[in-house]
């Protein structure tokens, strides 16, 4: 192979380069240029003076949240809620997609699929209302449990710290399962039908087809989404579910990073603090995604990314 200089290679692939270059510029402008704003975290930013005239405080804000005990509690909550969310969310979405793909009746399949993503469109305000009503002492859940004799007295689930993680995970899975399944469903659609035909001729059971064809074929998609989601661990459970589903009695378990950043950052007009937390968030997420990718090289050659 003749060694080519970079310039020559670029010229050889000039059409590709032409196709990709505008987007690279786009990313530089919209994703990377705003990063200059990170300097806000190192000054006591007052909008009046702009970033460069505000007083330099160095790592003051970082020190503030690193030494805050509450911060670690909040991190713990975030990991727990997001982790549960990703774990159950992924499995349920894949499960739903597989189940749907097994259905023969088109009408039934379309109906269920449409219905399944409806919760995605309901805002968290409404969803939290629904769950509060459902799980309250006079709500349906307690009612059913009492009648079935499983419990002997009503329990106010929303006020119990220990049940919060379970409730919020359930609500998130319920809300996003159908929507997340769309991607997996699209992946399943792309599987070559001939594989299934061949399997049928070989006498493979339905279950076997799922196990040996469907899942392996969409594995790259699954792995990639998983890696990306792990990178998103700090943000997977956003502001809304934590703030709206949580309340004074569960706050020690419900407050996550997004709420913390809002309370001590934006709400108090402390832009510098918000930015400092945002930097922490970004760095940590990148670390996570890099690690997850390294881990995935053990399953798929070359990693996901």
């Amino acid at each position: 192979m003749v060694k080519r200089t970079l310039a020559q290679k670029l010229w050889n692939q000039r059409i590709l380069v032409a196709m990709a270059l505008p987007f690279m510029v786009w990313m530089l402008v919209f994703n990377f240029a705003p990063l200059m704003g990170w300097s806000m975290a190192f000054v006591n930013y007052k909008p009046r003076y702009g970033i460069f005239s505000s007083e330099w405080v160095g790592l003051k804000y970082f020190a503030e949240f690193i030494t805050d005990n509450r911060f670690y509690e909040v991190l713990r909550n975030t990991f727990a809620m997001s982790g549960l969310n990703i774990f159950f969310g992924t499995f349920s979405a894949i499960g739903l997609a597989v189940l749907l793909s097994e259905v023969r009746s088109t009408a039934f399949k379309r109906t269920i699929q449409t219905v399944s993503y409806l919760p995605h469109f309901i805002s968290w305000v409404v969803v939290s209302n629904i769950f509060y009503t459902f799980l309250s002492s006079e709500g349906l859940f307690n009612d059913v449990l009492l009648r079935l004799g499983i419990t002997s007295e009503t329990v106010s689930y929303m006020s119990k710290e220990t049940s919060f993680w379970g409730i919020v995970t359930f609500s998130q899975v319920w809300k996003e399962m159908g929507w997340n399944a769309i991607l997996y469903l699209a992946a399943i659609t792309a599987i070559d039908p001939q594989l299934y035909e061949a399997a049928t001729l070989d006498g493979v059971t339905r279950f076997g087809k799922i196990r040996y064809i469907t899942i392996p074929c969409i594995m790259p998609t699954i792995m990639m989404l998983l890696v990306l989601n792990i990178g998103n661990l700090l943000n997977a459970t956003g502001f809304d579910p934590s703030y709206l589903m949580g309340n004074d009695m569960t706050v020690n378990y419900s407050e996550n990073l997004a709420v913390y950043a809002y309370t001590y950052g934006m709400q108090m007009s402390r832009y510098s603090m918000s930015t400092a937390l945002s930097i922490f968030n970004s760095m940590f997420s990148l670390l996570l995604v890099w690690s997850a990718n390294k881990l995935s090289t053990r399953f798929i050659e070359g990693g996901i990314l």
Partner: peptide, 9 residues
């Protein structure tokens, strides 16, 4: 439940 009651409820 008084302390977990929200506005709508």
């Amino acid at each position: 439940n008084a302390f977990i009651t929200k506005y709508d409820e």
